[in-house]
Simulated scan of single mutants.
Amino acid sequence: MGDFDVDWLRLRGPADVRARAADLPLLLRPHLPKRSPLKVLDLGCGTGSNLRALAPVLGGAQSWLCLDADTDLLDRLADETHAWAEASGFDWDATDRRVTGAEPHLTCTPDLNCTLATRRFDLARDLAELPIEGIGLVTASALLDLVSETWLAGLVSQCAKVQVPILMALTYDGRVAFEPALSLDREVIEAVNRHQGRDKGFGPALGPGANGRLAILAAAQGYWVEVRTSDWRIRRSERALQTALIRGWSRAAREEVTASDQAGIAHWEAVRLAAVERGCSRINVGHRDLLAIPRRA
């Protein structure tokens, strides 16, 4: 899926929250710089889901700089974070755009004191200008499968120069499993994965191979790398998310096959959507989270 509008981000949100590898932020914490506040650079931040997932786990004083090229998403980030803070039992200061939470809290150790700032930034065009000096953590969610080899190598090189840890969440890895299974499932997803390699604005996209390439590039720059699966396990009741995925996959697959094969994919879509409507469809979508720690950090 390449459409990162507000509706799509909200639709995928619960699956994202369930899927994240919970141990990687805990492994990261001892390797973060001791200076306070921790400065976090969030790439392609959308409406702030990465902040909302990580800030309570990292705890303490934090200052997030959230970058995205989409001003509509950036404009919504504060409101989305405010709503999340209230629902999670944190305090929100609209003047400072600050989330605070005192111990004890189920998800926050130690006290949370997190400010957020947003900046419109075109990652595809302006990577060389990335504001990385003084940053203690570079992170992103659902970004890497969209970028090119050249772009990713440039990012890793910049991070290595300043010895900053990298935490990348929810990178699609090409694995999809359906219940019930259909004979065309494999053919459709193979076509989708070919489509994922098209240019998404960063050059030819790495698609499902992005996480593996990041692991290799980071290790070559002296990082210690940990990878975890973070698969979406989409429930029968999550019909809207399943419907959006199936329709999006069908469109992408039809763009990758001959005209004679498009009718089969359209039929596959209709059968899959009927199963969703009956409440008997489940989908697992493969993702991976990656943590890279500089060996001298």
Rank of each mutant, 00 (worst) to 15 (best):
A210Y: 05
L290D: 03
G44R: 01
G209H: 14
A85C: 12
A181I: 05
C114Y: 03
V188T: 12
D3I: 08
R29G: 11
E103V: 13
V17R: 12
V276S: 09
S63G: 10
T81S: 11
A55T: 07
L241V: 06
P180W: 03
M168I: 12
R175G: 09
A128T: 15
L28Y: 09
V192R: 04
G222S: 02
R10C: 05
R247E: 13
W8E: 06
Q221E: 06
V192G: 05
R194I: 05
A270M: 07
G134E: 00
G13M: 12
E103R: 14
A191C: 12
V57Q: 15
V17E: 15
C159P: 00
S183D: 10
L170R: 02
T258M: 04
D289V: 13
G13Q: 09
R228W: 10
P14D: 05
K200L: 07
T118W: 10
Q262A: 09
D3K: 02
M168S: 12
R236V: 01
V138A: 09
G134D: 04
Q196T: 03
N50G: 02
L184Y: 04
I189W: 14
R18Y: 15
P110C: 03
F4T: 04
L51S: 00
V147M: 08
K34N: 10
R235G: 14
V138M: 07
L11A: 08
V227P: 02
T71C: 02
W92C: 10
R236N: 05
A263V: 14
R76P: 10
D16G: 08
E86V: 14
D68R: 02
L26P: 02
W151F: 14
I293P: 01
Q242T: 02
S157R: 15
A191D: 03
C280H: 15
E238Q: 13
P30V: 06
R52V: 07
A244F: 00
A244I: 03
P33F: 06
G279Q: 04
D261C: 12
A160G: 03
R288Y: 02
P208C: 09
A275T: 15
A215S: 15
G197Q: 15
T107N: 00
L127D: 03
A215G: 06
G197F: 08
G286F: 00
A270I: 01
P30Y: 07
L51Q: 08
D7H: 06
A53L: 08
S250E: 08
D261R: 07
V99L: 12
D185L: 10
R97L: 12
G101V: 05
I246T: 06
S237D: 11
